[in-house]
Computed example of a mutant assay.
Amino acid sequence: MRLRFPMKSAVLAFAIFLVFIPLFSVGIRMIPGRLTAVSATVGNGFDLGSFVEAPEYRNGKECVSQSLNRENFVSSCDASLVHVAMTLDSEYLRGSIAAVHSMLRHASCPENVFFHLIAAEFDPASPRVLSQLVRSTFPSLNFKVYIFREDTVINLISSSIRQALENPLNYARNYLGDILDPCVDRVIYLDSDIIVVDDITKLWNTSLTGSRIIGAPEYCHANFTKYFTSGFWSDPALPGFFSGRKPCYFNTGVMVMDLVRWREGNYREKLETWMQIQKKKRIYDLGSLPPFLLVFAGNVEAIDHRWNQHGLGGDNVRGSCRSLHKGPVSLLHWSGKGKPWVRLDEKRPCPLDHLWEPYDLYEHKIERAKDQSLFGFSSLSELTEDSSFF
């Protein structure tokens, strides 16, 4: 007999699991954060809002790191650490903070994670202000902020199906080999609209076999042709670039990357070449994704789908609600138009947005929570009346 669980019950059960799982993670010691808030308002009046200081997640005795044995100095070059790269900007700051919080909360050795945060040179909030806010929210976080010069790519960007996809910072992943310190040989790249509900070390331990440069969950059942225009497929030469490969769609919001091979193979230039072709002849509509498909599809290390439950933001036009894919979940990804913090603030959340909420450190959400029901239930009686939960 198959049991069917209503969406609200499934979300509540999963949310309870997420809240309590850190208590059983080996190696973590959690010290509650202070009930103070940090905020920033930049010179042009742009308010970043206030964030509550995160709990302090410390390594247990089972965790070992060479850096941590040297007077608590942590180097961005330490290959024994887990290296995570993300963008950091004023618009998606709340998502980035929640993503970092989720990784620390579920990491087996949180002090062994190093964050490489990439901020745009001309963000309304300067990289310096963003860095200060991250430090205030996570006082013991191992991180470094890099400045991305938007003029590096701005003349290569074509119009997209959604304006947000034209943001130059979306293309920072193309330049990781140049932006990050040359000593960084390997990195996990993650979008800012994700939360990780598993130990990030498991993803870090992915082996890139053969000559593969990147690893990512692949979706070979997806209609690969739709990611390119009819002009691409009707061209006498362009489709031939997939010759000898079996290309599958993959989402670039979660990638394990070998930066040594990336730099040696000049993959930045390969991606730029396709962007230049796009400027002359429109061959795709979806921002920064298609060049990655053109260069890597068919030669990607396949990672378990649990590491990118993507599409939770709905499509690129309506941003409608989506449900989880079948199977276990280690990472939830709100790719698409809808973002959980926006929908929660507007009091029109999708059921799965409540799974993101426990990691949100934005101060104002605490006041909002007082007026809202637990995980979307209007009352405790509604929860208990849902007998299928028990």
Results as ranks from 00 to 15, higher is better:
residue 225 T to L: 12
residue 276 Q to I: 15
residue 239 P to A: 06
residue 186 R to H: 08
residue 219 Y to S: 10
residue 226 K to Q: 13
residue 269 E to D: 10
residue 196 V to L: 04
residue 229 T to S: 14
residue 289 L to I: 10
residue 213 I to Y: 05
residue 258 D to F: 02
residue 270 K to Q: 09
residue 171 Y to R: 08
residue 276 Q to K: 09
residue 242 F to E: 03
residue 257 M to L: 08
residue 209 T to Q: 07
residue 255 M to I: 07
residue 288 S to W: 09
residue 233 W to E: 09
residue 208 L to P: 00
residue 240 G to P: 02
residue 266 N to H: 08
residue 278 Q to T: 13
residue 163 Q to R: 13
residue 297 A to H: 02
residue 277 I to A: 10
residue 291 P to H: 03
residue 255 M to S: 05
residue 210 G to L: 05
residue 267 Y to T: 06
residue 186 R to Q: 03
residue 224 F to I: 14
residue 208 L to G: 00
residue 254 V to F: 11
residue 256 V to N: 02
residue 280 K to Q: 09
residue 162 R to F: 12
residue 197 V to G: 01
residue 178 D to E: 15
residue 295 V to N: 09
residue 236 P to I: 05
residue 221 H to A: 15
residue 177 G to F: 11
residue 162 R to Q: 14
residue 209 T to H: 02
residue 221 H to F: 13
residue 172 A to I: 12
residue 183 C to M: 13
residue 240 G to C: 01
residue 300 V to F: 02
residue 175 Y to T: 02
residue 263 R to Y: 04
residue 202 K to V: 15
residue 274 W to C: 14
residue 192 S to A: 10
residue 254 V to C: 14
residue 177 G to T: 13
residue 279 K to W: 03
residue 277 I to V: 15
residue 223 N to D: 15
residue 255 M to D: 03
residue 188 I to D: 06
residue 269 E to N: 11
residue 181 D to K: 03
residue 220 C to I: 10
residue 191 D to L: 06
residue 239 P to L: 02
residue 269 E to L: 06
residue 203 L to F: 15
residue 252 T to D: 14
residue 251 N to T: 15
residue 166 E to I: 06
residue 162 R to I: 14
residue 259 L to P: 07
residue 287 G to R: 06
residue 289 L to C: 02
residue 294 L to G: 01
residue 171 Y to S: 11
residue 238 L to P: 00
residue 218 E to P: 00
residue 177 G to H: 03
residue 207 S to P: 00
residue 291 P to I: 07
residue 251 N to M: 09
residue 204 W to Y: 04
residue 290 P to A: 07
residue 163 Q to I: 11
residue 212 R to C: 01
residue 232 F to A: 00
residue 287 G to D: 08
residue 267 Y to K: 07
residue 161 I to Y: 07
residue 216 A to L: 06
